[in-house]
Design a protein around this nucleic acid. Structure first.
Length: 494
RNA sequence: GGCGCGGUACCCAAGUGGUAAGGGAGAGGUCUGCAAAACCUUUAUGCGUCGGUUCGAUUCCGACCCGCGCCUCCA
């Protein structure tokens, strides 16, 4: 079965077929780098990341481009407020964004920046003016004339036919022909950053950036365009209008939109006190893997209720998967293979694939892997796992993790970086006890722990449980969890 | 007001015209020097309410109630 995806343009689930047989060209609207990214932002980016990973797993070569919006009203306002240049201001938040994305294992797409494509954008506007789709206002700004594009509204399913003949209301400070016409190019206001171009001084409008950069990287028509649900209108609608007016061709085949999340059951907002950046969560002691797991646990088109309880649940779930892998890699198994386990592993791979093929049903894929883990664990206890069963089980787990990316336990170094950042920013007061504790467990190296474990083994052989327990307590205090099993002693970081 | 999405156990959350995945939490049990981990059992005759279609609906249709989103560059 092939991937079926919901397409906002057609409002239905369709079979996804890229234009080129083995390559997918996709563009995602990235962040405007004026502040640290919040969980809501990252829900969308995780959804796109899962799509990207699954496409690749399905055999496609993926060309994935994402913009960094590094010039807009907020950026100009904030950089002026802080007395730094736009470039200085955005560099900091762009770096932070990329670090945060990497922290939750989002693979980095090819990045494009608005400020690096200014001349192309000016040319694009000039061409639209030439074709009659755009016009220059008295102040030097340029607008798109939506009356010239009758299909305007086709993505967001809005009817603008009644609004196409001139403006009844003009609340904007610019002199537009119609209230709905949107800015392609903004003339500079006093003190604002601007570029000198063929069409005059100014800066590109946000919508224009994405049209120009996506087509320049991916061609006039490409396969998929992604973003948060809020971008459907006006951003993506405007991109379509500009791009299709410019080329006369279909801009994008598939429109992919991730739904907003709720935080503790309410819309995230600063005034409700439920507005969290990724770093806020880590400062509270939550692991990046828990965050990614939770963000991936609800299919992207459903509203996800992001809660601290959910974060804890996610942590336990991830722990269970990691523990299963540890068990498989550390255990001793009799020679041979058991048919039941072989087919369990094969079925699980199949179930994960068909769940994801079904409009990226991540919840179902997770259900499949846990079912495998439970059954394999039961077989393990009953001695039903043979040597040759290990590889297929691990393979299924890896297949799952190629998409979900939570198995590798690198949370501690990541959390340490956040802690160091908080110290550097003078935010010690925001560092929770939980975070300090978690980072603490990184102090002992693997070799140090192994040494202690060896001592513990010796003590146990001598049936000196008091000494053994003392070591276990010592390690526990350092954030190392020790487990004594039939096959020996296992440990992991809390 | 226009357009759209959703209401499933204590919590999170899939799903289906034929009788409710998975995870968490709780309880009991197995294993164990003690822990931990793991496993087993257990928690919805029930899927917002009321009608309708049907042999049969949580799943389709209608109405209503409730929550949420977009409609001002907020992912």
């Amino acid at each position: 079965m092939a991937l079926r995806l919901y397409n906002t343009m057609s409002s239905r689930i369709e079979e996804f077929r890229p234009l080129r047989e083995d390559e997918v060209r996709m563009y995602a609207c990235g962040p405007t780098v004026y502040d640290y990214g919040h969980v809501g932002n990252f829900r969308t980016f995780v959804a796109v990341d899962i799509l990207r990973r699954f496409l690749r797993q399905s055999g496609y070569k993926v060309r994935h481009v994402m913009n960094i919006t590094d010039v807009d009203d907020k950026i100009i306002r904030n950089s002026a407020r802080d007395g730094v240049s736009v470039q200085q201001y955005t560099a900091k938040y762009e770096t932070a964004f990329l670090e945060d994305a990497a922290m939750i294992n989002i693979e980095q797409p090819t990045l494009v920046r608005a400020t690096e494509h200014i001349p192309e954008m000016a040319d694009f506007v000039a061409k639209l003016v030439e074709k009659g789709f755009a016009y220059r206002a008295d102040d030097g700004s340029y607008y798109f004339r939506i009356a010239k594009f009758p299909q305007y509204g086709k993505l967001s399913k809005r009817d603008f036919s009644g609004m196409l003949d001139g403006a009844r209301v003009d609340v904007d400070e610019y002199d537009k022909d119609s209230a709905r016409d949107f800015a392609l190019w903004k003339a500079p206001k006093p003190g604002e950053a601007s570029w000198d171009t063929a069409i005059g001084k100014g800066r590109p409008g946000w919508h224009l950036e994405c049209s120009v950069m996506s087509m320049s990287e991916l061609g006039e028509t490409f396969d998929l365009h992604a973003g948060g649900e809020d971008l459907v209108f006006p951003h993506h609608e405007n991109e379509i209008a500009q791009s299709e007016s410019f080329t006369g061709k279909t801009f994008v085949d598939f429109w992919f939109h991730a739904r907003f999340l709720l935080v503790e059951g309410e819309k995230m907002s600063k005034s409700l006190g439920n507005f969290f950046t990724l770093r806020d969560l880590v400062l509270k002691g939550h692991k990046p893997s828990s965050i990614r797991y939770l963000l991936a646990s609800v299919p992207y088109r459903n509203q996800l209720n992001f809660t601290f309880d959910g974060l804890k649940q996610g942590a336990v779930s991830v722990e269970r998967l990691r523990n299963f892998r540890l068990r498989l890699s550390a255990g001793n198994f009799p020679e041979g293979a058991s048919p039941e386990i072989q087919s369990l592993a094969a079925d699980t791979v199949e179930r994960i694939k068909s769940a994801l093929d079904d409009d990226l049903n991540t919840a179902q894929a997770q259900g499949a892997i846990f079912e495998m883990v439970r059954q394999a664990n039961a077989a393990f206890d009953a001695g039903g796992i043979k040597k040759d069963d290990v590889a297929p089980l691990l393979a299924a787990l890896i297949k799952f993790d190629e998409i979900f990316a939570v198995l590798d336990d690198d949370d501690v170094p990541k959390m340490k970086r956040v802690l160091d950042w908080a110290v550097a920013e003078g935010r010690e007061k925001d560092i929770s006890e939980e975070l300090r504790e978690a980072v603490q467990s990184g102090k002992l190296s693997g070799a140090d722990v192994e040494k202690k474990i060896a001592e513990m083994k010796a003590a146990r052989t001598a049936r000196d449980f008091k000494a053994s327990d003392a070591i276990r307590t010592e390690l526990a205090d350092a954030g190392i969890l020790v487990e004594i099993t039939k096959d020996g002693i296992r440990w992991r970081r809390k």
